[in-house]
Amino acid sequence: MALPTSIKLFEMAPRDGLQNEPGTLVPTTTKIELIERLAKAGLTHIEAASFVSPKWVPQMGDATDVMNGITRQPGVVYSALTPNLKGLEGALAAGVEEVAVFGAASEAFSQKNINCSIAESLKRFEPVLERANEAGVRVRGYVSCVLGCPYEGDISPAKVAEVANALFEMGCYEISLGDTIGVGTPLAAKRMIEATRQQVPIEYLAAHFHDTYGMALANLYAVLEEGVSVIDAATAGLGGCPYAKGASGNVATEDVLYLIEGLGIHTGIDLQAVIDTGYWITNKLGRRPSSKVALAKGAGNQ
């Protein structure tokens, strides 16, 4: 299959990247500046916050302040994670225009992560989708552990397809398929997409791959060949998963951009500006970017 002619990059650093940051809380002003830098670099889809209980995810406790504090750029979608009705109401009050819910393709992971079965988790999303629909807000769906689970091991592509289809039929406009612990390889990624596209049209599928084993870019190229044209990534490779031992960050936006540009696909995103933003935020966090491209090119004007 021919590669896509255009790619939508979904930037995850402000939410998925920072939500598990250990130690002290990242200041609200830093989060706001990160989001605004990413928008100025040309990223048009940014997951900015998560409306969850601060008891469970302390780093996201300032979601309302973040959403109210950003200067919204025209043409940029600022979304938020809303796992339940309470979270959705908070997001709506803060003027969020797109939200997301998350399920898993692994029963064990679902129990460990959100203390219920896959079927129960999907049932919980129904009122969220209904309320979002009433409010005219689009909902994105996430499926975790699509290429492996820390508790169950291998995950059947048919199970991924089943959960993705349930979210799609419920009304999610896009389904993001997450290799949460980064164990996938290109052939497994292809087979997972082949199975899922039988139930959800390829244009509604996104790839969300972690780079734990250094396979994220290879896996992304494999699913691009299958027709996937939406990629989740996090500047500087920030992120991880508190329920997945050893899971490193998301694939770095800088590395994905370098790959896409090398394939001759136009993105409209300023790679150097993203690199500089990665150096800026990791400096604030006391470390270096994990992006290979950022380390190779170095920072310009941070």
Rank of each mutant, 00 (worst) to 15 (best):
N84W: 07
P83K: 01
P242C: 11
E21K: 01
E261W: 07
T196Q: 05
W280Q: 06
A207L: 10
G239M: 13
D276W: 08
K190V: 15
V223E: 05
T29L: 10
V200G: 09
N250F: 12
P83R: 02
S50T: 10
D211Q: 09
A93P: 06
V101L: 08
G240R: 09
A294G: 13
L9D: 05
E226V: 08
V251T: 11
I118P: 09
S176C: 12
A206V: 06
K86G: 15
E97S: 15
N68E: 11
E254N: 02
V96M: 05
L205T: 04
G240W: 11
G171N: 01
S110P: 05
A39F: 08
A233Q: 04
G103N: 12
V66G: 03
L25N: 04
L257D: 04
H266M: 05
F102N: 08
K245L: 08
F51A: 03
A252M: 10
A63Q: 03
L263Y: 08
G249N: 03
I275G: 05
E126Y: 01
V128I: 13
S248V: 14
A41C: 08
H210M: 10
A164E: 04
G300R: 12
S110Y: 10
I181C: 14
K112W: 13
I70K: 00
S106M: 08
A108S: 15
G61C: 04
Q19S: 05
V256K: 02
T180Q: 10
I155A: 01
S291Q: 05
L217R: 04
V183W: 06
I260G: 01
R37S: 11
F109H: 12
I70N: 07
A41M: 05
N115H: 12
T30E: 13
K86R: 15
A49R: 01
L3W: 06
T282G: 03
E107A: 07
G298R: 02
V200N: 02
A94W: 07
L224M: 15
F10T: 03
N219V: 06
N219S: 11
T5D: 14
I155R: 04
I275A: 01
Y221V: 14
T64N: 00
A94C: 04
T180F: 11
W56T: 14
S229W: 00
R15W: 05
H45I: 00
M1W: 08
N301D: 12
P27L: 12
F51V: 07
K112F: 14
E97Y: 06
P289F: 02
K284E: 13
P22G: 03
A164H: 03
E254Y: 05
M60R: 09
R124L: 15
Q199S: 14
N165C: 15
C149T: 00
V251G: 06
Y213R: 14
V77N: 06
A247I: 12
P289R: 06
Y243W: 14
K8S: 13
E107I: 06
C149I: 00
P54V: 13
V139T: 09
V57P: 07
Q59S: 04
I32E: 05
A105Q: 01
